[in-house]
Simulated scan of single mutants.
Amino acid sequence: MIQQIYPQVQHNYQFELNKDMHIAAAHYIPHEDAGKCQKVHGHTYFVNITIAGDDLDDSGFLVNFSGIKKLIHDRFDHTILNDHTELFSDKDPSFFPTTEGMARAVWEVIQRELDTKVNKPKCVQVFVRETPTSYVVFRPKQKEEQQ
């Protein structure tokens, strides 16, 4: 069993769902400052996805856990992250497959799917641990209310 303490994200939604998973994947960072990480190498990433919302769907779920796993685990597990060119780039540093880039990419995939749901849940945080001592938290910026 995976047991982890995560940074908390503040929100005003009634429901908060968290899904944990391990993803075995390889990557390389296409920049000279990455040192030995310029070479292809792998990690067992630990990913936690936090989804929040006020309304449940017709089946009583905020989001079905199995759907989250299919979206992320089935997509990235046992792949080379750099090969996911719809999410990562070897040219734009904002889209390198770093831990930060992985957290952003997971959020994008999840939120794109959530936007199709009638109950409109929101992915409020993605936690990605790359090694036992290093992790990144991605939280989308909240849109400022229009005046």
Rank of each mutant, 00 (worst) to 15 (best):
S59R: 15
K91A: 12
L62A: 07
H73R: 14
A103T: 12
V126T: 03
M102L: 13
E144L: 11
P132G: 02
P30Q: 12
G101D: 04
E16P: 06
L81F: 09
T116K: 00
K39I: 12
Q4E: 00
G53N: 02
V9M: 09
A34S: 06
T85G: 02
V136F: 01
Y135V: 09
K143E: 15
W107R: 04
E32M: 05
R139N: 12
A34W: 10
E144C: 09
F138C: 05
E145A: 04
P30A: 13
V9E: 13
Q14V: 03
H31C: 04
T133I: 05
V40D: 03
R112D: 15
Y6A: 13
I2L: 10
K91H: 05
K91P: 00
H78K: 11
M21S: 11
S94R: 03
M1D: 07
H73S: 15
F76A: 08
I72G: 09
F65L: 15
R139K: 12
F96Q: 07
F138V: 14
Q111M: 05
V47E: 02
A34P: 00
I80A: 11
H11S: 10
V47T: 01
Y28H: 13
P140G: 15
Q142I: 15
K69V: 14
V118C: 06
D83H: 14
V63K: 02
Q14N: 11
I72R: 01
S59N: 12
K122E: 14
F61Q: 06
F15D: 00
P140K: 11
K36E: 15
I110W: 05
P93T: 06
H84E: 01
S89I: 05
V63C: 02
C123V: 06
T50E: 00
